[in-house]
Design a protein around this nucleic acid. Sequence first.
DNA 1: ATCGGATTTGCGAATAATTCGCAAATCTTT
DNA 2: AAAGATTTGCGAATTATTCGCAAATCCGAT
Lengths: 130, 130
Amino acid sequence: MASYMTGQRRELLGFLRTNHDRAFSAKEIAEEMSDRGVSQSAVYRNLAWLEKNGKISRSTRDGHREIYYSFVDAEECRRSLHLTCEKCGRTVHMDPAATGRMLSDIAGRDGFSVNMKKTVLYGVCAKCKG
Amino acid sequence: MASYMTGQRRELLGFLRTNHDRAFSAKEIAEEMSDRGVSQSAVYRNLAWLEKNGKISRSTRDGHREIYYSFVDAEECRRSLHLTCEKCGRTVHMDPAATGRMLSDIAGRDGFSVNMKKTVLYGVCAKCKG
DNA sequence: ATCGGATTTGCGAATAATTCGCAAATCTTT
DNA sequence: AAAGATTTGCGAATTATTCGCAAATCCGAT
């Protein structure tokens, strides 16, 4: 019933971690991992496992129907939400103080507890606004 | 170059509007629309069009790899963000005051402007918490 | 270090989801 | 009502994702 953080999973996660500023589709990840001798089906299974275990998160992208995956930094997720830019696809972290204020607002008024690993705020970043 | 809000699109949108408290997969929508004589390919094309025109938004759901679509209420989107429950898939709106505070925090500190039609906060709603 | 039972992987085929091409039907403006 | 542009239906082509099962790995207890 237990499950393992296997070599493949560690490697997939490592790939996303070293590229944590952008998200990848299952296909892109499968191609990357294929070069390292990992089968396509394992990639799908590992993505599902990593997501279920809170190691990665999903997002979607303008005009693309696929789901994109990106590395989740547990420490950072405890303090701030993700902001991903629809233009350039890159992710930054929201200010921790503002995040905290917002979470308590939501918990208090709406009785809703936010999943910070999964939630992504979409919009346009400062760089792309110009 | 212009494009039309056709009968089919209006009807698809109407279906999502009358069921605006939950999201539907393309497949579910295709089935619903098929009963009304709409082809599957038109459903996909119409979903893309409606999304591009800001009439509907996407979300994803635990354990499901498909993309789900739901009605966007323009008026409400101006004032509050969506909160969708990962358990039951239903959507509620965040308190407008809290939303406003949060948006200005983000704009100020992070220089990021949030797309309120696209953004969805995931978590667990008050009802499902029990 | 090795053994054994549980979990994961590769492979290739099966399913499911989404897109395409093109002629016919609709739509909006005139 | 006519013309030109956009949308639709149909069915086939593509893509994406999942499955089944034997072989390979993994990890905890020897």
